[in-house]
Amino acid sequence: KEYCRTLFAYEGTNEDELTFKEGEIIHLISKETGEAGWWRGELNGKEGVFPDNFAVQINEL
């Protein structure tokens, strides 16, 4: 499994977007979303897309 840590808080504006606080760990599902600048991940049981410049991939939890 791949993970990323959020660098900033983000408020999702669409139903398919994740909302998160700074410093949260998102399970990274895919970097290929069909839309440049967006990754797909899962946080707190919800799957959605989020801007990749708001997070950095990490090697271990």
Results as ranks from 00 to 15, higher is better:
residue 1 K to S: 09
residue 1 K to D: 07
residue 1 K to A: 05
residue 2 E to I: 15
residue 2 E to R: 09
residue 2 E to Q: 13
residue 2 E to A: 13
residue 2 E to P: 08
residue 2 E to W: 05
residue 3 Y to G: 04
residue 3 Y to I: 03
residue 3 Y to T: 04
residue 3 Y to E: 04
residue 4 C to V: 07
residue 4 C to K: 03
residue 5 R to N: 04
residue 5 R to F: 05
residue 5 R to L: 07
residue 6 T to R: 03
residue 6 T to Q: 03
residue 6 T to F: 00
residue 6 T to H: 03
residue 7 L to F: 02
residue 7 L to C: 07
residue 7 L to Q: 09
residue 8 F to I: 11
residue 8 F to C: 13
residue 8 F to G: 14
residue 8 F to Q: 15
residue 8 F to V: 14
residue 8 F to M: 15
residue 8 F to K: 15
residue 9 A to N: 14
residue 9 A to W: 06
residue 10 Y to M: 03
residue 11 E to Q: 07
residue 11 E to V: 10
residue 11 E to S: 09
residue 12 G to F: 03
residue 12 G to Y: 02
residue 12 G to R: 05
residue 12 G to N: 03
residue 13 T to R: 15
residue 13 T to G: 14
residue 13 T to V: 12
residue 14 N to G: 12
residue 14 N to Q: 14
residue 14 N to R: 12
residue 14 N to F: 07
residue 15 E to N: 10
residue 15 E to I: 08
residue 15 E to K: 08
residue 15 E to L: 10
residue 16 D to I: 03
residue 16 D to M: 10
residue 16 D to T: 13
residue 17 E to S: 09
residue 17 E to M: 07
residue 17 E to G: 04
residue 18 L to Y: 05
residue 18 L to M: 07
residue 18 L to P: 06
residue 18 L to F: 03
residue 19 T to Y: 06
residue 19 T to W: 04
residue 20 F to T: 01
residue 21 K to P: 09
residue 21 K to F: 06
residue 21 K to T: 12
residue 21 K to I: 08
residue 21 K to D: 15
residue 22 E to N: 06
residue 22 E to A: 12
residue 22 E to V: 10
residue 22 E to F: 00
residue 22 E to G: 09
residue 22 E to Y: 00
residue 22 E to P: 12
residue 22 E to Q: 12
residue 23 G to D: 14
residue 23 G to H: 03
residue 23 G to N: 12
residue 23 G to I: 04
residue 23 G to T: 06
residue 23 G to R: 04
residue 24 E to A: 08
residue 24 E to T: 08
residue 24 E to R: 01
residue 24 E to S: 06
residue 24 E to D: 13
residue 25 I to M: 12
residue 25 I to Y: 11
residue 25 I to D: 08
residue 26 I to A: 01
residue 26 I to D: 03
residue 26 I to Q: 02
residue 26 I to R: 01
residue 27 H to Y: 11
residue 27 H to I: 08
residue 27 H to V: 13
residue 28 L to F: 05
residue 28 L to M: 05
residue 28 L to W: 01
residue 28 L to E: 02
residue 29 I to Y: 02
residue 29 I to W: 00
residue 29 I to D: 03
residue 29 I to Q: 05
residue 29 I to N: 06
residue 30 S to L: 01
residue 30 S to Y: 00
residue 31 K to Q: 05
residue 31 K to I: 03
residue 31 K to D: 02
residue 31 K to N: 04
residue 31 K to S: 04
residue 31 K to A: 03
residue 31 K to P: 02
residue 32 E to G: 09
residue 33 T to L: 07
residue 33 T to Q: 06
residue 33 T to K: 07
residue 33 T to H: 10
residue 33 T to S: 12
residue 33 T to N: 07
residue 34 G to Q: 10
residue 35 E to M: 13
residue 35 E to V: 15
residue 35 E to S: 15
residue 35 E to Y: 15
residue 35 E to P: 09
residue 35 E to Q: 15
residue 36 A to G: 09
residue 37 G to R: 03
residue 37 G to V: 03
residue 38 W to Q: 08
residue 38 W to C: 07
residue 38 W to A: 05
residue 39 W to F: 05
residue 39 W to P: 02
residue 40 R to M: 10
residue 40 R to A: 06
residue 40 R to F: 10
residue 40 R to T: 04
residue 40 R to S: 04
residue 41 G to C: 00
residue 41 G to F: 00
residue 41 G to W: 00
residue 41 G to I: 00
residue 41 G to D: 04
residue 42 E to Y: 04
residue 42 E to T: 10
residue 42 E to N: 12
residue 42 E to V: 10
residue 42 E to G: 07
residue 42 E to Q: 11
residue 43 L to R: 09
residue 43 L to V: 08
residue 43 L to K: 10
residue 43 L to S: 06
residue 43 L to F: 05
residue 44 N to T: 05
residue 44 N to R: 12
residue 44 N to K: 14
residue 44 N to P: 00
residue 44 N to Q: 05
residue 44 N to H: 13
residue 45 G to A: 06
residue 45 G to S: 07
residue 46 K to D: 07
residue 46 K to T: 08
residue 46 K to M: 09
residue 46 K to W: 02
residue 46 K to Q: 08
residue 47 E to W: 04
residue 47 E to L: 09
residue 47 E to T: 13
residue 47 E to A: 09
residue 47 E to P: 02
residue 47 E to V: 13
residue 48 G to R: 01
residue 48 G to E: 03
residue 48 G to K: 02
residue 48 G to H: 02
residue 48 G to P: 00
residue 48 G to I: 02
residue 49 V to C: 11
residue 49 V to W: 11
residue 49 V to E: 03
residue 49 V to T: 11
residue 50 F to M: 01
residue 50 F to L: 03
residue 50 F to H: 02
residue 50 F to G: 00
residue 51 P to F: 03
residue 51 P to W: 05
residue 51 P to L: 07
residue 52 D to Y: 12
residue 52 D to N: 14
residue 52 D to M: 15
residue 53 N to V: 10
residue 53 N to F: 11
residue 53 N to W: 07
residue 53 N to A: 14
residue 53 N to L: 11
residue 53 N to T: 14
residue 53 N to E: 13
residue 54 F to G: 08
residue 54 F to A: 15
residue 54 F to S: 15
residue 55 A to D: 03
residue 55 A to N: 03
residue 56 V to W: 06
residue 56 V to S: 09
residue 56 V to M: 12
residue 57 Q to K: 10
residue 58 I to H: 09
residue 58 I to Q: 09
residue 59 N to Y: 07
residue 59 N to T: 11
residue 59 N to S: 14
residue 59 N to K: 08
residue 59 N to L: 05
residue 59 N to H: 12
residue 60 E to A: 13
residue 60 E to V: 08
residue 60 E to S: 11
residue 61 L to E: 14
residue 61 L to V: 14
residue 61 L to S: 15
residue 61 L to Y: 15
